[in-house]
Design a protein around this nucleic acid. Sequence first.
DNA 1: GTGACTTTGTGCATCGGTTCACAAAGGGAT
DNA 2: ATCCCTTTGTGAACCGATGCACAAAGTCAC
Lengths: 225, 225
Amino acid sequence: MKSPSQPRDRGIPEATVARLPLYLRALHGMAERGIATVSSEDLAAAAGVNSAKLRKDLSHLGSYGTRGVGYDVEYLVYQISRELGLTQDWAVAIVGVGNLGRALANYGGFVSRGFRVAALVDADPEIVGDTIAGLNVEHIDELEAVIKRRGVSIVVLATPAAAAQEVCDRVIGVGVTSILNFAPVVLSVPEGVDVRKVDLSIELQILAFHEQRKAGGPLMAVDGQ
Amino acid sequence: MKSPSQPRDRGIPEATVARLPLYLRALHGMAERGIATVSSEDLAAAAGVNSAKLRKDLSHLGSYGTRGVGYDVEYLVYQISRELGLTQDWAVAIVGVGNLGRALANYGGFVSRGFRVAALVDADPEIVGDTIAGLNVEHIDELEAVIKRRGVSIVVLATPAAAAQEVCDRVIGVGVTSILNFAPVVLSVPEGVDVRKVDLSIELQILAFHEQRKAGGPLMAVDGQ
DNA sequence: GTGACTTTGTGCATCGGTTCACAAAGGGAT
DNA sequence: ATCCCTTTGTGAACCGATGCACAAAGTCAC
């Protein structure tokens, strides 16, 4: 189908994509500790997955290992970074500068991965004009202008639930196609727009479900897992 | 195998469990708007899934719908809540009261789902003793004592990466078996302990991957999805 | 009470992802 | 140069989840 000379197949499974950042984190840690080469076994352990899965995941990017030796840490960091698009710098806007938005603006994990918080936007006149994490908070009326001016391509929604859909529509209106949504609502977006959602309370509810089973007493099936 | 009189099968698929909170949220919204009855079609739309999946998910809990009519909103809220263990009140401790910990402490989504933030713990003497979200921040030395005294069964880790594993070990030491980890490390835990992790930068990296493809130009395969 | 209509619950085919297990590939020692 | 050892990359079996499509079950109008 695709040019056979190209080692990398362009159809990387979604599940693999979701794990690449994990591998990258583990590799960064190893690079810092001066480790030059790592086996799939060790890297898998550091990333918390099994080694067969790791090898299959990496094989989707290409053949970057050496049999009998393992993977070169630096090289693999580069390859994964490139695949994820982290070799370029992404301008991110955070809309909604409440508790969560503020925490996100100050979160170091973004910057260290090629993401640059380029704008903070809020509707509350009390907050607009404040400086947070070295950035001026701009008014929601300026939303479209700010996004265009700063070249923002990824928007983080940390607004109240009620405001999320409207903000979402507006940023899509100026060409944004990648949205990370922290508001507890299902956003409806046109084809071609990617939304990823993080709902903090959902994770807790899943824990509660399992916790209940563990504590469940004699009625419960003894689960094991 | 199990008692056949019992309608509810105790082996609910993990994928289903992860969606139940979504349905619950949609149902709460409907209850507030005074909707008494809802079809799988409408509820699925509100939760952002397809209706066959919704019906199959609900069928794992039991037969709570009425053919030709749909589901009673109140009743379904109750059944899902019970299944998730949200009819009881869960005491949660947040360890690490930095930007993120503070945001979590103030996050309304917890309280509204039967979770009660029962303790805040930090190592920084600057912060210990402060009152945040109506709670006194306690010293990390008191960790075990606080957890036992307050009956905490779920711990949220919002510490720096370097501290997470130690805190994790300590809380497991006093019997905690459910942990929500925001620190960017892979925690190693004994059998029987549930860890769920939320890594904010991973979500952004996944978005970057897809964004890169969309913007990728002529080299890229035209993907569609 | 009957018939038309609606909507659930589920059997079945399908799909994507995981895991196993091993042949192929390379390094290093002699 | 050859052999042994290690580790990758992958074919194939397996497993769980998804989605289709429909029979079963119920409501409502008359």
